[in-house]
Amino acid sequence: MSDKYTPDTLTPELKAAVIDLLYRLADDSIVIGHRNSEWTGIGPILEEDIAFSSTAQDKMGHALAFYNLLHELGEPKPDDLAFLRDAKDFRCCSFVAMSHLPANAEGDVPELMNNPTRNRLIVHGDWSISLMRQFLFVEADVLRMHALESSTYQPLAAIARKIRGELKYHLMHAESMLRHLATGTDESRKRMQQALNSVYPHALGLFEPTQHDKTLANAGIAPGETHLRDEWIEHITPLLAGAGLRQPTDVEPVFGGRKGRHGDELVALLADMQKIYRMEPTGTW
């Protein structure tokens, strides 16, 4: 019964909703891709460094694909979207912008001739946060993209189908790592539990409801956020329990990102990311 939509057949109301959806998808992708690539070259072991870097590249590629869809709908070109917008214009959740640093990562950082963010990562960074975030994100990403494979907005459905294989690997990698790290040593169990506790409220922010949810769901373009969240919880609960981790309950989700309200972490991340591009915003790099 649903219509099939293309850029030309969207009503103005649907178009506004699709644009908002695409910003959420694209901004989540570029920001988590950026974060995960901070580990490239300094990962916990060479083989895992390589694997994690690939997932970061994939997410940047997904971001580009979504930015291209936005450009088709009359928004600026992809590089300008990634590098010229301020934090308030980003629609990612706070979860993807979180740094890899534990809450107690204070103190001076020696000058290691990296950028300051990387210096801090090298001195204080904790892989357990990165991997736990990756696991929780990937589980949501796979559910969301799987649902979008049958989106009535055809350009989006095409992308969702195209990236299915990449996401399947992200899932294999994240689930395997989670199981290994949560069951490995006392130390690794403890780190993974702490990481879960600290990132979980932000992870719920992946499913922050928006004013467009009903419109998108009714038009068959995207599943509702609350529906996705329930599916996600149903999915990760046995996986976390199977790995011996205690899933936090009665958690207050961290919302705001989908409305452009962000903390310092995204502002700092964008300052890093956009620094060179903004030196010559009309130039070719």
Binding site: E38, F83, N115
Partner: peptide
């Protein structure tokens, strides 16, 4: 080079 990944000026 890794230290410049976060600053790379295009997608």
């Amino acid at each position: 080079e890794g230290t410049w990944i976060p600053h790379a000026p295009s997608l």
